[in-house]
């Protein structure tokens, strides 16, 4: 599947308390909770390709674990991209 990724995150996963507010807040739905716990035992969000850099996760996060970046050029990945190459 073709994926356009316009942004990305730095997640301070060890400070996450696992409230999951970011999961539903993410418009492209590219955040999912981890299977394994962080340093304090909480599950934390993991990022799949497709982030738009919209900052919604950062907006709703009560624990300030997100840093948001926007790429100068979108990164295209997945089957479409491979075909284009």
């Amino acid at each position: 599947m073709r994926q356009v990724t316009r942004g990305t995150l730095v997640i301070d996963a060890d400070r996450c308390k696992g409230c999951e507010l970011c999961i539903v807040a993410c418009p492209p739905r590219v955040l999912t909770m981890s299977r394994a716990g962080n340093a304090t035992g909480y599950l934390y969000p993991e990022l799949a390709p497709g982030c738009t850099g919209c900052t919604a996760c950062q907006q709703v996060c009560p624990d300030f674990v997100f840093e948001v970046y926007k790429y100068h050029e979108p990164i295209v990945s997945g089957s479409d991209a491979e075909r284009m190459q």
Partner: peptide, 13 residues
């Protein structure tokens, strides 16, 4: 997501 991206980017938040 453990460190800033290597590709050219701006930090927005």
């Amino acid at each position: 997501t453990t460190r800033p991206p290597e590709a050219p980017s701006n930090k927005v938040a």
